[in-house]
Design a protein around this nucleic acid. Structure first.
Lengths: 406, 406
DNA sequence: TCATTTTGTTAGTAAACCGTACAAACAAAC
DNA sequence: GTTTGTTTGTACGGTTTACTAACAAAATGA
């Protein structure tokens, strides 16, 4: 495992690794981790340092090429402090000087800095497709360098977990830089420790996937819900707002909620599980869960395809089928949009199903059922990230956990 | 204004007032303020200090009588640091030594500390009733010392704002300790600056109530939404969880959402405005907003009373009317409960309407329409705080903003 | 009486950031 | 060509913060 070796070799030369949550330290929880700090925890000066480290990285990550003085201005920290922090990062290899600024200005020319975007690579895994596991090797920008996948072929339980380990290993072998971490977006309910509490399609109950991967590869691992990963990807790469909802349609229906830039987990880590909430008061088809008229019976891809096939067989309008599905999605979302005062909804899933009459009916239903003035510019659109959304979201989870960047 | 004078006289003798966000400083935003810290902000060591100050207060506020060593153990800070922080608070008058611990243990007997719960008083105002403004003078425990109210008599606009100022002035005159701050729970949409963007019943649009009161009284002021205030009160005094929803039924219907112990504001500060979301797909009565079948048409107190009167006139079952209203509340909440994975819902409003067939129908509908296993112990109950809920919540807003305590 | 435990304080240390000052490098004005 | 002013990045010293180590005070229990 050359990647892991290269990773570990960084630690001794790292200025911060010895004194706290440095980038190579995956046992402690960084201050700026995507997961919320417990309010009952003390804060020491070194936590402030860790936060400000992330702040510098975040600034460079977002705005790109900047000088130390630029960073000082935009963060509010002094040039002295920024120089100190940047010096640390340079010695760690995470920031590089990229030459001098060209434009003609008075004063000493600025030395431009940038995150060394090839310093590390990330492995992102998507377990949400019911027929295969997708994986990718990504750079720090979230760009995909390599794709790999493995067919599930009906595997469940330990077999499925073994296939995850195999896929991760395959991708690690392709790495040409040290690995920042491994991110996994899993269907079902996933807790803070990266244990999959429940994933019916995979036959998983209380599978400690994060711990399994950590023991196998000795690299930082983050395991989260697939829809939460997707919403993070949309936020980081899709230009989405800090408050939004992503509805993910596939074999089932799930959602990820972003509130103030951080995912919402819920009291039992089951936030976003809207697939089995009953829609409306006009009955509906029976669902695998035992109820009638769940959102999944209207919207899940297999159910929609079947309804479309039936319509075609009867020479009925397929657009009407899609619009009816969209209308029921709108009915379900209306209460959520109202309660959370959402301004942006993103759909992820098969474009030929979602992007058209379905989306149009959804937004119309939402406008008719909520107070327009509170949601004046309520938008609903397809994701621009296509099938890579979860894999890239898994990479965002790693970036957030290891560098505090998103 | 003796209260304001007493308040200001504290500042010069305060050890911290001169060096940062002390308790008497209402111009700066405390680190532990109830409102979320922008992630793009730097953190300095003094912010850590401010956070740890709040941590000490929070510990004492919750657990009561404790020694310095007790606080050190429960916060993780050292006894030295706790002694230092406590020393500051004692010199500010906010913490007092209350004698020695009595129980027989080896070692030097502990000196017990407690928050000086009579050191400050709080003014809480509730603008949510459409016929009157309620106000109260409270101690630091949220206990009510004095009640005052003023009838609205149809006042709107500037008249209504003047009545708020008058009510606050009346309560300040009753104060026997320095005033920690003034909290106001207003109906409608309220932004971060305490400006009421929209409150139709009061005829308010963009009324900077927080600024008006600050200029009038020169005391810390927090203005927030009434349902958000209520949910904070339920969290602090009603024993509610850190993740919950409070549905407030009165002249209209609103909700406050608590996520991880902090209120949810939404993209346009209109989170919780569920009164005008259309329920179900079985039509419904026309609403003042122009739509049909809004939640308010089923649940608002005047509408419910009218429906009950009609049922009594027809010798029909009033329980059926209440159950039908509860069923529609359940339909609305189902999607929200599923999306947010809520475990606790609290109702606030007229007990004779809500507590009975209505609540029973709501919880039954919720159980039938959501995935039970995600919400195994989903509870729905009435608030225990009665009509004082908003006034006490307004006090919590002040405690949170000024002391970081909740 | 003496060892042990617990509390709270004193003294010294390390980390983190700030303000001031300064040299280097450049543009623009004279 | 020189001077002036601007901007950048660094060096130094100082303040704030919380920590460790050590200790006196005050109790219990053998």
């Amino acid at each position: 495992m050359t990647a892991a070796g290269a990773q570990r070799s960084l630690s001794p030369t790292s200025a911060t690794a010895a004194r706290g949550p440095g980038i190579a330290d995956h046992t402690t929880q960084g201050f700026s981790s995507g997961r919320a700090l417990r309010p009952s925890a003390k804060i020491l000066p070194e936590h402030a340092r860790s936060h400000n480290r992330s702040l510098v990285l975040q600034t460079l990550y977002r705005a790109g090429q900047q000088s130390r003085a630029d960073i000082a201005r935009s963060t509010g920290l002094t040039r002295v402090t920024i120089s100190d922090l940047v010096g640390e990062f340079i010695s760690e290899g995470l920031i590089v000087e990229t030459g001098q600024r060209e434009d003609a200005r008075p004063g000493k020319p600025a030395t431009l800095l940038d995150i060394n975007r090839s310093a590390f690579q990330i492995v992102g895994i998507d377990l949400s497709d019911y027929a295969m596991f997708r994986g990718a090797l990504l750079d720090l920008d979230g760009g995909i360098l390599e794709h790999r996948e493995v067919t599930l072929a009906g595997s469940t339980g330990a077999d499925a977990a073994a296939k995850v380990v195999g896929l991760v290993g395959e991708l690690l072998a392709l790495a040409t830089s040290p690995i920042l971490g491994i991110g996994v977006g899993s269907p079902g309910v996933v807790d803070f420790t990266g244990t999959v509490l429940s994933a019916p399609n995979l036959g998983w109950t209380d599978v400690p996937l994060q711990r399994i991967l950590l023991q196998e590869f000795s690299l930082p691992v983050v395991v989260g819900n697939d829809a939460n990963a997707a919403v993070l990807a949309e936020h980081s790469f899709g230009g989405a707002d800090r408050d939004m909802m992503l509805v993910k349609v596939g074999h089932g229906v799930g959602a990820g909620l972003l509130v103030g830039g951080t995912p919402l987990y819920g009291s039992r880590f089951a936030a976003g599980e809207i697939g089995h909430v009953v829609v409306g008061t006009d009955g509906g088809l029976p669902c695998v869960c035992g109820k009638n008229g769940c959102l999944e019976t209207w919207l899940a891809a297999p159910r929609l395809e079947a309804a479309l096939a039936a319509a075609r067989a009867n020479s009925a309008s397929t657009d009407d089928v899609l619009a009816e599905a969209g209308r029921h999605l709108g009915i379900s979302l209306a209460a959520i949009v109202g309660a959370l005062n959402l301004a942006e909804i993103v759909l992820s899933g098969p474009t030929h199903l979602l992007d058209g009459p379905l989306a149009a009916a959804t937004i119309e239903t939402l406008r008719n059922r909520t107070m327009a003035q509170f949601h004046g510019d309520l938008t609903l659109r397809m994701t621009t990230l296509g099938e890579d959304i979860v894999v890239r979201g898994a990479a965002v989870m790693v970036l957030s956990a290891q560098l505090g960047v998103s």
